[in-house]
Design a protein around this nucleic acid. Structure first.
Lengths: 110, 110
DNA sequence: AATTTGCGTAACTCACAGGTTACATATATA
DNA sequence: TATATATGTAACCTGTGAGTTACGCAAATT
């Protein structure tokens, strides 16, 4: 088996994969119908799909010989969690600034 | 000049850079004090800092011969915007489900 | 003025992600 | 059953991101 087990950050680093996610946000698609939107070979698309699947960005439903790709929330959640930490950082930074402004006791040294 | 102009997605794809952001969320650091935390050469850290700077994740304040790296919100905002699109997607998906559940008029065909 | 410190840049190596083509396999269709 | 369709996998090639070392330069320090 191949080693294509990239983490969520590496997964969205690729523009093609981001576009795939965007397409899948409009409609669920099979591998081939996905591939029609790209200027690359079908096996290449197939690889990307595998990567997206392994990282929890899509689920796959086999219908006969077709593989339907459906957007899945897991991968996005991991990213949001990471970002939320920094959102909190900016929030607390703002708080500190406010606290400083409320200190109207005229501290001018340094 | 070098071509190290990676987009925000590529920037956070690297674990070392993510750790740098984390360290900088605790405290502003110079290049050297940053480098102390990593098992890599100082020039390597310097490169990463350049990348982070170009993508808007940090600002740099030159004090004498020292370069102080400070966390900056711009890069994070771009990522949040991207994620927000999909958050909205999940939101609307939930709405559709709710709407479906509220249709208690027993539609069973397909 | 000489030395040390903090940092950037150039040139190089290397691993590996992302692409290809060729082939294999399972499911529809004729 | 023979053929077409939808897809996965193996083997390979290639560009480039991420690391290195060597060097240069400006700002402190002595």
């Amino acid at each position: 088996m191949e080693q294509h087990r990239l983490d969520v950050f590496q997964v969205i680093a690729d523009p093609s994969r981001r576009q795939m996610l965007h397409l899948l946000s409009k409609d669920s698609l099979t591998i081939n119908s996905l591939a029609e939107n790209f200027d690359m070979s079908r096996p290449a698309v197939s690889k990307h799909v595998k990567v997206l699947h392994n990282a929890g960005f899509i689920s796959i439903q086999d219908i006969g010989r077709e593989r339907h790709c459906i957007l899945k929330q897991d991968g996005f959640k991991q990213l949001q969690e990471w970002l939320t930490y920094y959102n909190a950082f900016w929030g607390s930074k703002l708080k500190k600034l406010e606290a400083l402004l409320n200190e109207r006791s005229g501290n001018s040294i340094k």
